[in-house]
Computed example of a mutant assay.
Amino acid sequence: MSEQFEQGEAATLSGWQAAAADLAHCVRFYSRLPVPALPWEQNAHALPSFPRLVRMIPLAGLVIGLLPAALLGLALTLGLGPWLSAILAVAAMVITTGGLHEDGLADMADSFGGSTREKRLEIMRDSRIGSFGASALFLSLALRIGALATLASRIDGSAVIAVVLIVASLSRTAGLMPLVFLSPARRDGIARSVGQPARETFWLAAGIAGGISVILGAIAGLPPSGIALMLVLSALSGAALTGFASRHLGGQTGDVAGAAQQVAEIAALIGLLTVVQP
Rank of each mutant, 00 (worst) to 15 (best):
11 A>K: 08
46 A>H: 12
209 A>M: 03
125 R>C: 12
63 V>E: 08
2 S>Q: 15
179 L>N: 05
76 L>G: 03
181 F>P: 06
29 F>L: 10
118 E>A: 15
4 Q>V: 13
108 M>L: 15
79 G>P: 08
109 A>N: 08
61 G>W: 07
10 A>I: 00
187 R>F: 03
89 A>G: 05
44 A>C: 01
3 E>Y: 04
66 L>C: 05
219 I>D: 04
24 A>I: 01
276 V>R: 01
110 D>E: 06
224 P>I: 07
143 L>P: 06
232 V>L: 15
202 F>G: 09
192 R>G: 02
31 S>C: 11
19 A>T: 01
131 S>D: 10
158 S>K: 02
155 I>M: 02
17 Q>Y: 03
4 Q>T: 13
245 A>N: 08
151 L>C: 04
273 L>E: 02
271 G>V: 10
271 G>I: 10
240 A>I: 14
34 P>K: 01
215 I>M: 08
238 G>L: 06
147 A>K: 04
49 S>W: 15
78 L>S: 00
233 L>N: 11
144 R>N: 04
152 A>M: 00
107 D>Q: 07
6 E>N: 13
81 G>M: 01
272 L>Q: 05
278 P>F: 10
193 S>A: 15
91 A>D: 14
244 F>D: 08
156 D>L: 00
104 G>I: 12
249 L>K: 12
207 G>C: 07
196 Q>Y: 10
113 G>R: 15
106 A>I: 13
257 A>R: 02
13 L>K: 06
112 F>T: 04
55 R>E: 04
71 L>N: 00
9 E>Q: 13
61 G>E: 04
207 G>W: 06
95 I>P: 03
163 V>E: 03
117 R>F: 06
243 G>H: 09
96 T>D: 09
67 L>G: 00
19 A>D: 04
33 L>E: 01
15 G>V: 14
68 P>G: 04
211 G>A: 09
104 G>N: 08
270 I>R: 06
152 A>V: 02
62 L>N: 03
172 R>G: 10
178 P>R: 00
150 T>F: 08
172 R>W: 05
96 T>C: 11
278 P>I: 11
106 A>F: 14
60 A>V: 04
115 S>I: 09
153 S>Q: 12
172 R>N: 08
142 A>R: 05
278 P>N: 07
164 V>L: 00
94 V>L: 14
54 V>C: 09
202 F>V: 08
189 G>S: 02
26 C>V: 06
236 L>P: 11
1 M>G: 09
190 I>V: 13
82 P>R: 01
99 G>W: 02
111 S>I: 12
102 E>A: 05
25 H>G: 11
126 D>A: 08
178 P>D: 01
207 G>P: 04
275 V>Y: 11
39 P>D: 00
226 G>H: 07
128 R>Q: 12
148 L>N: 00
106 A>C: 15
195 G>R: 03
40 W>Y: 14
89 A>Q: 05
37 A>P: 10
139 L>D: 01
264 A>K: 13
140 S>L: 12
198 A>E: 14
140 S>I: 11
272 L>M: 06
135 S>L: 15
17 Q>W: 06
122 E>M: 09
84 L>M: 05
99 G>Q: 00
91 A>S: 15
162 A>P: 02
140 S>P: 06
227 I>Y: 05
181 F>Y: 15
239 A>F: 13
214 V>W: 15
5 F>W: 07
221 G>L: 09
161 I>R: 14
54 V>S: 13
17 Q>H: 05
58 P>K: 00
52 R>M: 09
162 A>F: 03
247 R>K: 15
